[in-house]
Simulated assay, not measured.
Amino acid sequence: MRALVAAAIGLVPVLLFVLLVSTVDLPPDGPTSPRPLLTADPGPKK
């Protein structure tokens, strides 16, 4: 039982950090491309 409590206490900061990073959504460093990497439309055939 003590091991479960210790594991839960150890995981709380990790879960809080993951939630913080997912809600803040920091912008990437450097220039970014306006074109998306993945598109639903493949475009014209070459």
Results as ranks from 00 to 15, higher is better:
Met1Trp: 02
Met1Arg: 07
Arg2Trp: 02
Arg2Asp: 01
Arg2Cys: 07
Ala3Gly: 08
Ala3Val: 05
Ala3Lys: 07
Leu4Glu: 01
Leu4Met: 03
Leu4Val: 05
Val5Glu: 02
Val5Asn: 06
Ala6Ile: 11
Ala6Thr: 13
Ala6Pro: 07
Ala6Ser: 04
Ala6Val: 12
Ala7Gln: 09
Ala7Ile: 13
Ala7Trp: 02
Ala7Ser: 09
Ala7Asp: 09
Ala7Cys: 05
Ala8Arg: 14
Ala8Phe: 14
Ile9Asn: 15
Ile9Gln: 15
Ile9Thr: 14
Gly10Phe: 02
Gly10Thr: 01
Leu11Ser: 00
Leu11Ala: 07
Val12Trp: 13
Val12Lys: 10
Val12Asn: 11
Val12Asp: 05
Pro13Trp: 01
Pro13Tyr: 04
Pro13His: 00
Val14Glu: 09
Val14His: 06
Leu15Lys: 15
Leu15Glu: 14
Leu15His: 15
Leu15Cys: 14
Leu15Thr: 15
Leu16Trp: 14
Phe17Leu: 10
Phe17Lys: 07
Phe17Arg: 03
Phe17Trp: 02
Val18Arg: 10
Val18Gly: 15
Val18Asn: 12
Val18Thr: 05
Val18Cys: 11
Leu19Ser: 12
Leu19Asp: 11
Leu19Glu: 08
Leu19Val: 08
Leu19His: 12
Leu19Gln: 09
Leu20His: 15
Leu20Tyr: 11
Leu20Ile: 10
Leu20Val: 11
Val21Arg: 04
Ser22Gln: 08
Ser22Val: 05
Thr23Phe: 13
Thr23Lys: 12
Thr23Glu: 13
Thr23Tyr: 13
Val24Trp: 08
Val24Gln: 14
Val24Lys: 10
Val24Pro: 12
Val24His: 09
Val24Tyr: 08
Val24Met: 11
Asp25Pro: 04
Asp25Met: 09
Leu26His: 08
Leu26Pro: 10
Leu26Phe: 14
Pro27Leu: 04
Pro27Tyr: 00
Pro27Val: 00
Pro28Ser: 15
Pro28Arg: 10
Pro28Phe: 12
Asp29Cys: 05
Asp29Ile: 10
Asp29Phe: 10
Asp29Thr: 08
Gly30His: 03
Gly30Arg: 07
Gly30Cys: 02
Gly30Tyr: 01
Gly30Gln: 02
Pro31Ala: 04
Pro31Asp: 00
Pro31Arg: 01
Pro31Cys: 06
Thr32Val: 05
Thr32Asp: 04
Thr32Arg: 07
Ser33Asn: 02
Ser33Leu: 01
Ser33Pro: 02
Pro34Asp: 08
Pro34Asn: 09
Pro34Tyr: 10
Pro34Ala: 13
Arg35Asp: 00
Arg35Ala: 03
Arg35Gln: 01
Pro36Gly: 03
Pro36Thr: 01
Pro36Tyr: 00
Leu37Arg: 07
Leu37Asn: 05
Leu37Pro: 06
Leu38Gln: 13
Leu38Thr: 13
Leu38Trp: 06
Leu38Glu: 09
Thr39Gly: 12
Thr39Met: 14
Ala40Met: 11
Ala40Ile: 13
Ala40Gln: 08
Ala40Ser: 09
Ala40Phe: 07
Asp41Glu: 07
Asp41Cys: 08
Asp41Phe: 06
Asp41Leu: 09
Gly43Ser: 06
Gly43Phe: 07
Gly43Ile: 04
Pro44Gln: 06
Pro44Asp: 04
Pro44Lys: 01
Lys45Trp: 02
Lys45Gln: 03
Lys46Tyr: 10
Lys46Ala: 11
